Lab assay of single mutants.
Amino acid sequence: AVSDRLIGRKGVVMEAISPQNSALVKVDGETWRATSGTVLDVGEEVSVKAIEGVKLVVEKLE
């Protein structure tokens, strides 16, 4: 799938994300809905860990 190429890519949080709420991230110039197990604020850099349906699963870039 096209989205599989995004695993391992870096992105930027466009809307705050919490474990209860998905929000938008920008990866390679494209906007995607994403979820995370932690709270992520706007502007934080993230890494794509997986794809669940049409959502990216991201975590904060260390």
Rank of each mutant, 00 (worst) to 15 (best):
A1E: 10
V2Y: 10
V2P: 15
S3M: 14
S3Q: 09
S3D: 08
S3K: 09
S3G: 10
S3F: 12
D4K: 13
D4T: 13
D4N: 13
D4I: 13
D4M: 11
D4W: 08
L6Q: 00
L6I: 07
L6R: 03
L6E: 00
I7W: 04
I7P: 01
I7V: 08
G8P: 02
G8R: 04
G8C: 08
R9C: 10
R9K: 12
R9P: 01
K10N: 07
K10C: 13
V12C: 10
V12K: 06
V12Y: 09
V12S: 04
V12L: 08
V12T: 08
V13P: 00
V13H: 00
M14L: 13
M14E: 05
M14Y: 06
M14Q: 06
E15W: 09
E15L: 10
A16Q: 09
A16H: 08
I17S: 15
I17A: 15
S18T: 12
S18H: 09
P19N: 11
P19A: 12
P19C: 13
Q20T: 12
Q20G: 15
N21Q: 11
N21Y: 11
N21E: 09
N21L: 09
S22N: 10
S22K: 06
A23C: 13
A23R: 03
L24C: 08
L24A: 05
L24T: 07
L24R: 05
L24M: 09
V25P: 01
V25D: 01
V25F: 01
V25G: 02
V25S: 02
K26D: 07
K26I: 12
K26Q: 10
K26C: 15
V27I: 13
V27C: 04
V27K: 01
D28P: 01
E30K: 10
E30T: 07
W32T: 00
W32A: 00
R33V: 14
R33I: 14
R33P: 13
R33H: 12
A34I: 04
A34H: 02
A34L: 00
T35S: 08
T35Q: 07
T35V: 13
G37I: 13
T38G: 09
T38C: 13
V39K: 12
V39Q: 12
L40T: 02
L40P: 02
L40F: 05
L40N: 00
D41M: 15
D41C: 15
D41I: 15
G43V: 01
G43R: 03
G43E: 02
G43T: 02
E44H: 06
E44S: 08
E44A: 09
E44R: 04
E44I: 08
E44V: 09
E45D: 06
E45C: 15
E45L: 14
V46A: 01
V46Y: 03
V46M: 02
V46I: 11
V46E: 01
S47F: 15
S47T: 15
S47P: 01
S47Q: 14
S47K: 13
V48N: 02
V48I: 10
V48C: 00
V48E: 01
K49F: 07
K49Q: 07
K49I: 15
A50K: 07
I51Y: 06
I51K: 04
E52N: 11
E52P: 01
G53N: 04
V54T: 14
V54P: 09
V54M: 14
V54K: 12
K55I: 15
K55N: 13
K55W: 15
K55H: 15
K55A: 10
K55D: 08
L56T: 01
L56S: 03
V57L: 08
V58A: 02
V58C: 03
E59M: 08
E59T: 08
E59N: 05
K60V: 06
K60M: 04
L61H: 07
L61E: 06
L61P: 05
L61F: 09
E62T: 12
